[in-house]
């Protein structure tokens, strides 16, 4: 039972940062904008969130600051791709590099410091239920918010007019423009939302999951987030499932150490990357399936005047 509790509660915590960033990226991609700079935005959010929490002592301030900075950075991407017609790949890489540089500059004098860590939310009797309580109800508030975000994203994208507009723009921005929809504005909004969520995801890493700042701590999670949207074929529940799958994988590394198995730690560290590569190959193999689900204009230069 202890093992099960460890796996479930650990997975929920480990996947939270991925959930935030992946839901944000999914919304941006649904509107037709690929943002490859997620890694940079998560890193910037992580540094900003950590510094803000250190200075103010408030987690709310930390997460808001991280979201604002992540959003601002992603809006640079929005302006480059939507106004200046830059290639989405090149622009995403550019702000990714910019974000990594910013994160390093922001966090420089905080390197190796720690903060208290986000406390568990007290859910009273629920937390006291044996096993179930330990698995699900002894988490911090961001874990619950990330689950709420999954449902909210799913609801907005599939059940509301806004969702329909976003999807229409992602499928054919030219037609949406002809219909009088504000393509640039809505895309910018989606990209900005994605940046804010990536910032929050990054801040969760540095202030809650491992409450310390170290340069390079995002360690490729931003790229795994981009891969998750492909893995989940742009469908909310599947993307969320992918995030939990990857969350559980990062537990393996801890387990190996706990059980004292003699496997090089590097072999465990590469696991998420190797699995991502295999998953990408397996999922992308079916070209028709990918074409059916991916937003048709994803990655294309916006051609409206």
């Amino acid at each position: 039972m202890d093992v099960l509790v460890f796996i479930v509660s650990g997975t929920l915590a480990a996947a939270t940062a991925l959930i935030f960033a992946a839901m944000g990226e999914l919304v941006a991609e649904k509107s037709g904008v690929l943002n490859l700079g997620i890694e940079g935005m998560m890193a910037t959010g992580a540094a900003m969130g950590f510094v803000a929490v250190s200075l103010s002592g408030s987690y709310t301030v930390g997460f808001v600051a991280a979201a604002v900075l992540g959003c601002l950075l992603s809006l640079v991407h929005a302006v480059l791709t939507l106004v200046f017609r830059a290639d989405q790949t090149a622009s995403g890489l550019a702000i990714g590099i910019l974000g990594l540089g910013l994160s390093s500059a922001i966090g420089k004098s905080y390197e190796g410091r720690t903060v208290a860590g986000l406390p568990e939310l007290n859910l009273g009797p629920l937390s006291d239920i044996p096993v179930i309580g330990e698995m699900f109800f002894q988490q911090d508030i961001m874990v619950y918010l990330s689950i709420a975000l999954i449902f909210a994203t799913w609801y907005v994208l599939t059940r509301t007019k806004l969702g329909l507009v976003i999807r229409a723009i992602g499928e054919s921005p030219e037609n949406a423009h002809a219909l009088g929809l504000k393509v640039r504005l809505i895309r910018a909004g989606c990209v900005g939302f994605g940046g804010a969520m990536a910032g929050i995801g990054g801040a969760y890493m540095s202030t809650a999951y491992t409450p310390l700042w170290a340069e390079g701590m995002i360690a490729g999670r931003g790229w795994i987030v981009v891969a998750l949207t492909v893995f989940g074929t742009w469908i909310v529940p599947r993307v969320a499932f992918g995030a939990y799958l990857f969350g559980s994988m990062s537990l393996l590394e801890l387990s190996i150490q706990a059980f004292g198995w003699n496997i090089p730690s590097q072999a465990m560290s590469v696991l998420p990357y190797v699995v991502t590569i295999i998953m990408l190959a397996v999922i992308s193999r079916n070209l028709a399936f990918i074409r059916l689900n991916s937003p048709a204009s994803l990655g294309a230069v916006l051609k409206i005047s």
Binding site: G40, A90, A94, I95, I97, L98, G101, S104, A105
Partner: peptide, 9 residues
């Protein structure tokens, strides 16, 4: 890093 990112941006 910031200079590199700015150059490309």
């Amino acid at each position: 890093g910031i200079f590199q990112g700015m150059l490309l941006t």
